[in-house]
Design a protein around this nucleic acid. Structure first.
Length: 427
RNA sequence: UCCGCGAUAGCUCAAUGGUGGAGCAUUCGGCUGUUAACCGAAGGGUUGCAGGUUCGAGUCCUGCUCGCGGAGCCA
């Protein structure tokens, strides 16, 4: 693979890939080969290769699949520091008129050609960082005593009763819904295994049309038995530090391709600042925002708050009225929920939402009734409070928002290979 | 759902109500170290769709379609 060519200096090698770009100057021709692992400049001198091979270089278009043979050489003038002094060229599949040229394109064209856009250096870098983040997430939990549990995607009822879900017919059993969260099922698993996490796609049928929303996105949700809100925040900051520092140590080249300023990412270390909702409201008022206590924080509110800090900030104890039914109320103030949101810097908004869960049977039942949720659908969930109920907490981290933040993207649509949005479900 | 902006060559964009252009891409020619290479030439158009105003509409008006930005909702 191209990323390993440095180990083959002085040797003749053959390498398969795609033609990324080419330039020619009379009797010398340069091609840039890409293979997914990196980019390699290959030089064709007239005289070093057959007339036929030399002419073939002219003929093949961008994204032709080829196999290049030649000797590896360290070369300062070549991108990446190494170059292939080519002796042969085998065409595996010739291509002409690849739509995405190395020039500028508009977003509509690029999204229509998303299946081809993925081959560009920028998209390749993003996908590699996305993979590193996914791996860091799994490594972190696997290394801290968590068991991965897979929760259902088709569910009989809305998990939280707050957002609009995709609906589908389910044989003779009526309607089924695409899950918006695996959390309730993760709680059941946590009562079996202690510390668990699930990691998979979730779905929201909200007609949200912003740079932070997809209708299908990936979420990781740890759930821990015998953990309170403070334990939850301790976990979130330790976890977030691990994920960000993993990318910084392994993906510096990819971040350079994205021209990401990593100054603030380097700051993502424990402890993260913790402020209460009340303190957040004070910050808003100091910044001239007319904010009424009791409302949820909007996107611009989150940006103002996060701009006060040089790293992600945890906002805890929100008004219970704007939070989900299963969140435990603060014993010190019944109007507050033991919830926490982690706001990423630079306007990337909420990347983590979590809480301590209500563990008392009667209280949870009355919450379900207050929210006009069908009790039958939650009988199994109530059982968790009937048999060996314990304080427990967890959170959910949105993968695409995290990728967008770490990569410095201006829209989540670039953070997943094939984004699903309100006005686009193709390609 | 609401507010705002837009749709012209394969792509990115120009064009005062008066003969639709440029750069890139493509094809041809030139160049022995290019870095989104460069230089010269050629081909390439039902100006999103439907109506209207006007002697004359890419340009003004109305409706529609699609897209983009933002709000709300949310992670």
């Amino acid at each position: 693979m191209i990323k390993d060519v440095g180990n083959f200096v002085g040797q003749e090698i053959s390498i398969k890939g795609w033609l990324y770009n080419k330039r020619s100057s009379g009797k010398i021709k340069f091609i840039i080969l890409r293979d997914g692992s990196g980019y390699l400049q290959c030089v064709y001198f007239k005289g070093n290769v057959t007339e036929d091979t030399f002419n073939t270089v002219d003929k093949i278009g961008q994204e032709s699949a080829i196999e290049v043979t030649g000797k590896v050489r360290a070369e300062q003038r070549a991108p990446g520091g190494y170059e292939l002094d080519a002796t042969d060229l085998r065409v595996i599949s010739e291509t002409h008129d690849f739509p995405i040229t190395p020039k500028e394109h508009g977003i509509e064209f690029l999204m229509d050609n998303r299946h081809l856009w993925l081959r560009s250096s920028r998209q390749v870098a993003i996908l590699k960082i996305r993979h590193r983040i996914s791996k860091a997430i799994r490594d972190y939990f696997d290394g801290h005593g968590f068991t991965l549990v897979d929760t259902p995607i088709l569910t009989p009822a809305a998990c939280e009763g707050t957002s609009t879900l995709f609906e589908t017919d389910y044989f003779d059993l009526g309607k089924a819904y695409l899950t918006q969260s695996g959390q309730l099922y993760a709680e059941a698993n946590a009562m079996a295994l202690g510390k668990v996490y699930n990691f998979g796609p979730v779905f929201r049928a909200e007609k949200s049309k912003t740079r932070r929303h997809l209708t299908e996105f990936w979420m990781v949700e740890p759930e821990v038995a015998f953990a309170d809100l403070n334990d939850d925040m301790d976990l979130a900051e330790d976890f977030l530090e691990y994920v960000v520092q993993s990318v910084l140590s392994d993906n510096i080249e990819d971040l350079k391709i994205l021209e990401r300023d990593i100054t603030l990412l380097k700051n993502v270390k424990k402890p993260l600042p913790r402020i209460s909702y009340d303190e957040a409201v004070e910050i808003l008022k100091k910044n001239g925002v007319e904010f009424e206590w009791g409302n949820d924080l909007g996107g611009t509110d989150e940006t103002i708050i996060s701009n006060q800090f040089d790293r992600p900030v945890m906002v805890h104890r929100y008004p219970s009225a704007v939070k989900a039914f299963y969140m435990k109320r603060d014993p010190q103030n019944e109007k507050l929920a033991l919830a926490v949101d982690v706001l990423a810097p630079e306007g990337y908004g909420e990347i983590i939402g979590g809480s301590q869960r209500e563990e008392d049977f009667d209280t949870l039942l009355s919450r379900i009734e207050e929210h006009n949720l069908p009790r039958e659908a939650f009988e199994w969930y109530l059982d968790l409070r009937k048999y060996g109920s314990v304080p427990h907490s967890g959170f959910g981290l949105g993968l695409e928002r995290t990728v967008s933040w770490i990569c410095g993207l201006d829209h989540v649509r670039e953070s997943i290979p094939f984004p699903r949005m309100i006005y686009r479900n193709t390609p």
